[in-house]
Simulated assay, not measured.
Amino acid sequence: MMSKKQTVFNLLFLVVVFGLTMYLVFRGKDIGDIISTAREADARYLLLSIVCVVLFILGESVIIFYMMRTLGTSVKMGHCALYSFVGFFFSCITPSASGGQPMQIFYMKKDKLPIPVTTLVLMIVTITYKAVLVVIGLVICLFGGGFLRGYLGDYMWVFYLGVGLNVFCVTFMMILVFAPGLAKWIMVTGLKLIEHIRILKPRKSRLEKLEASMDQYHETAAFWASHKRVILNVFLITFVQRCILFTVTYWVYRALGLHSYGILTITILQAVISVSVDMLPLPGGMGISETLYMVMFVPVFGSLMLPSMLLSRGISYYGQMLISAVMTCVAHMTIGRQK
Rank of each mutant, 00 (worst) to 15 (best):
M2E: 10
K4Q: 12
Q6T: 08
Q6D: 05
T7I: 05
F13Q: 00
V17A: 06
G19V: 01
G32R: 07
D33N: 06
I35E: 06
R44A: 13
R44D: 13
V51E: 10
E60F: 06
V62N: 01
V62A: 03
Y66A: 01
M67D: 12
V75E: 10
M77A: 06
V86M: 15
C92L: 12
I93T: 06
I93V: 08
K109N: 15
V121S: 04
V121K: 05
V134N: 07
G137P: 14
G137M: 11
V139G: 13
G146L: 03
F159N: 03
V163E: 00
V163K: 02
G164N: 00
F178D: 04
F178G: 06
P180C: 02
A183I: 07
E195H: 04
H196A: 08
I199K: 03
P202W: 01
E219H: 14
T220A: 15
W224N: 10
A225D: 15
A225G: 15
T238H: 04
C243R: 11
T247F: 07
A255C: 10
L256Q: 15
G257V: 09
S260N: 09
Y261H: 05
Y261I: 04
I268N: 01
L269F: 02
Q270L: 00
I273F: 03
S274D: 00
G285V: 13
G285I: 14
I288W: 07
S289D: 14
L292Q: 08
V300M: 12
L306W: 12
L310H: 13
L310Y: 15
R313Q: 06
G314L: 04
Y318M: 09
G319R: 09
C329H: 10
